[in-house]
Amino acid sequence: MFWWILRRLGQMAIVLFGVVSLAFLLVYAVPADPATTLAGPNASAATIASIHKQLGLDEPLWQQYLGFIGRLLTGDLGTSYVLRETPVFGRIAAALPTTLLVAVGGIIWQILLGVPAGIYAAYRRGSWVDRVITFISLIGLSAPPFWLGLLLIYYFAFTWGLFPLNGLGDPVIWFLVLPTFTLGAGGGAWYARMTRTNMIETLDSPFVRMARAKGMPEHVILWRHSFRHIAIPLITMIGLDFGYFLGGVVIVETVFGLNGIGRLAFDAISNLDTPMIVGTVLFAAIFIVVVNFIVDLLYSVIDPRVRLNS
C-alpha cells in the first residue's frame, strides 16, 4: 500500500510537471509578445525593453524556465503580468469559491437528474417512460452546454423573469440555479445512460433472479441490492467529473458572467499572462490528478477485487 501510494504520488508529480512545462512552453511559443500586449501597440521600443527587463523576458528561455520552476517549487506562483501587484495565488484563491460552488452544484444536478432517471428507465425497460428518458438523455448529451445555457437564460431569465440573468448576488443559490443546471445537464444525461446500462446488467444478474425467486419485495431488490452495485462505478464517475468540472467551467462562467477560475484562465490566455496561465492550468490539473488518485484509492477500498488483479 505504502509503495503503491508513493509510486502514484511520483506519477502525479511527473504529470503535473509535464502540464506546467507544457503550459509554460506553449505561451513562450506564442509569436505575439506579452510586453506589446501590455504596453499597447504604440509603445516605444524602450518601453517594451523595460517591460521585458521587468518581467525577466530578456533572459534566455532555459533561464526563464528554470527560474520559473524554482519559484514554483517554493510555492510562489509569481505575479500576474497584466494585473500587476496581484499575486497569482491570491487571484486564484479569490476566484475559487465561485468555481467550487458552480462545480458542486453541477455535480448535484447530475446526480439528481441522472441516477433516478437511469434506475427507473432500467426498471421499466422497454416501456415508453424508458424511451422518453433515453431520448431526453440523448438530447442532453448532444446539446452544446453553452447553447443550453443561453436557452435557459432566454426563457427562464429573460422571457419569464424567474431567475437572474447573470452574475452572482443575494441569495447566491438563486443565481446559481441556471449555471449549475447548465453544467450538470450533460453529465446528468450521461449518468442516466450509465446508470441504466449498469442497472439492467445488475437486474439480469443471478443474485437478483435468486432474490426474486425467494419472493423478496421489488423495492428491496431495487434499492438495497442493485443500487449498491451501481454505486461503485458512480462514485468513480463523480470523482472524475469533479476534476473535469473545475477545469472546464469556462463555458458556463462565460455564459453566465461569473468570475471563476475558468474565466480567469481564459482571460489570462487571451492576454498572454504567463504566470496566470500556468497558475490556473496547474491548479486545474492538480485537481484532476488528485481526484483521480482519490478515486483509485476509494475504488480499491470499496471493491476488494481491484487489489487482487493486476
Binding site: M1, W3, W4, I5, R7, D296, L297, S300, V301, V306, R307, L308, S310
Partner: peptide
C-alpha cells in the same frame, strides 16, 4: 508483481 493499493510488490 508490482505493488498495488493494499498490496506489496
Amino acid at each position: 508483481r508490482s505493488a498495488g493499493p493494499g498490496r506489496k510488490a
